[in-house]
Each structure stands twice: as C-alpha cells, then as structure tokens.
C-alpha cells in the first residue's frame, strides 16, 4: 500500500468504517511508516478538535420543544370537539327535533382531548407527593432539628348515598382523587344514581377528562340509562371522535348506535373519515347502515 492510499483511508479508519481486511492493511502500513504514523496522529487530533466543537442544545430546549409539541398535538386532537359542535349546531338549526332546540352556545364544551387529559394527569401527579405540614422547626442539642408535623389521621365513615355527607365525599373522590382506582370505585358507587344532575355532571366530566381509560369506561357505563339525554349524547359523540382509547370509542359508538338522529349520523360519518382502527370502522359502518345512512359525509 502506498502512503497516499493509506492516508485516504485514515478518516474512515478512525470512524471504524473500514472492512476488516482494509483496516488490517492500513494498520500494517502505519506500523512500518513513520511519516504516516505521524499523519494518522494529526488526523486523530483533528477529530478530537471537531468533537470539542459540538454545540450542545442549551438546557431546557428539549423540555420546551416537548411541551410545545404536545400542546400542538392536543390542539389537533381536540379539533373533533369543534366538529361535534358544528354538526350539532347545524342540526339544531335545520331539524325541528325538540331534543336539539336548545342553542348550542348555551352548552359549554369542554375542549379537552387526550393530551389535555394528560396535562391534567401530570399536574395531579405532582400533588400526589405526600404533602407534609411542618408546624415548627427547632434545633436540638445534638445539632439536628426537631420538626413538628401535622398529619392526617385515617378515619372510616359509613353511610348510604342519600346521606348528603357521604354523597358529597364520593362525588369529590370521583372528580378529584389522584388515585384512578378510587375514582373508578367512586364511579361504580354513583352509576345507579345518574338521574341526579350533580352525579351526571361528575360522570360527564370524567368521561371527557379523566386520564385513565377504565375510569372513562365506567363513567360511560354509568351514563347508559341517560344515553338519550342530549348532553350525554354530545359527550359520547366527542368521545367517539377524540378519545384516544379504542375501547372507549367502541363503547361510545354502542351507546349512540341505533339512533337515527342526524347529529349522530353526522358524527359517525365524520368518524369514517378519521378512524384508522378497522374494528371501530366496521362498527361505525354497521351503525350507519342500520340507520339507512351512507358512510359518506353528512
């Protein structure tokens, strides 16, 4: 191997990109040739000099980029809620169905898609850290400190749901606990009482916002007897189009299906445009056929 041929290989050699045999030839030449040895070591220094020139992104840029990305994604995901509102408002103007007579603007839409729910989740997980109430900090003789803490004692209460105190606690556990198991069991406790507006409100909110899909499923289950209620149908429509969990979308379709209302047909037609899960597409198609509607857009 000539010196020139050896030197042409130095960079690839340093990057470990030479074939086993090629590497062997370069190494043998360098062993025997002092001037190429020197050249290789200059080459190596140059590589090190380049290493030092890497500009590392400033601290915080990755976090900021991730935050912005998820917020953009959530805006894309939330878009279906706007579509539900459009379908609903159009229907309420063109149909005389009394169920849709109430103006759309009167119903506040909770524009929370799955990423919104996620943000909610992460905000909550912060508060999941045990909160210690420190009442006083006093230095002691050994050089340490004596802290007095206020701690909450565990207590058990029992009662029926018609007890306002019990009911209030279950409602607040269902809506505000950081523990998904507790929220789910609270949904179970509430599900036979959805004739009450405050119970329904908690179930609807959970269905739209709870970050845990099993809790959302329980909320939908609890709302079953009220599946004909316009507000419930609207929340179900939002779930069909924007919930990130296929089981939730499936269950929501089940509750909406068989309904020949134009709004529901519109939602299912919209779903056909965006749904990629084949089972759900099939289900939606079946529901549309059952309503003698076409799968194309309403």
């Amino acid at each position: 191997m000539t010196c020139e041929a050896a030197r042409r290989q130095f960079d690839l050699y340093l990057y470990g990109e030479l074939q086993f045999g090629e590497e062997e030839v370069v190494e043998r030449h360098v062993e025997e040739c002092a001037s190429c040895r020197e050249e290789l070591s200059r080459c190596r220094s140059l590589h090190h000099a380049m290493d030092a020139l890497e500009s590392v992104p400033p601290a915080g840029l990755l976090q900021a980029s991730r935050r912005e990305f998820w917020s953009r994604v959530s805006r894309e995901r939330v878009a279906p809620v706007g579509i539900v509102a459009r379908i609903w408002s159009w229907v309420s103007r063109v149909t005389a169905s009394p169920a849709f007579m109430r103006p759309v603007g009167a119903v506040a839409l909770l524009a929370v898609g799955f990423m919104g729910a996620r943000a909610w989740d992460s905000a909550k997980s912060k508060s999941e850290q045990p909160v210690l109430h420190v009442r006083s900090v006093v230095p002691d003789a050994s050089g340490g400190f004596r802290l007095v803490l206020d701690e909450v004692r565990q207590r058990t209460v029992t009662g029926r749901l018609d007890d306002a105190r019990i009911q209030g606690m279950i409602l607040s556990a269902a809506a505000g606990s950081t523990d998904p198991m507790l929220r789910a069991s609270s949904m179970d406790a509430l599900k036979d009482h959805c004739e009450r507006a405050d119970v329904r409100k908690v179930l609807l909110t959970a269905m739209r916002q709870d970050p845990n899909f099993s809790v959302r499923l329980k909320a939908i289950e609890g709302l079953k007897p009220f599946a004909r209620d316009p507000e419930t149908r609207r929340a179900l429509s939002e779930a069909v189009l924007s919930d990130d969990h296929p089981s939730v979308r499936t269950m929501a379709i089940d509750l909406l299906a068989g309904d020949r209302e134009n709004a529901v047909i519109g939602v299912l037609q919209e779903l056909m445009l965006r749904e990629s899960n084949p089972d759900i597409r099939q289900k939606s198609l079946k529901a549309l056929r059952a309503s003698n509607a076409s799968p194309s857009t309403f």
């Binding site: 992104p57 400033p58 840029l61 900021a64 980029s65 912005e68 990305f69 953009r72």
Partner: peptide, 9 residues
C-alpha cells in the same frame, strides 16, 4: 436554538 426548536416541531 429557534431553528432547532422549529425542526423538532
């Protein structure tokens, strides 16, 4: 930084 942020998005 700004370009890197934009490329990321």
């Amino acid at each position: 930084e700004q370009d890197a942020f934009d490329i990321y998005q």
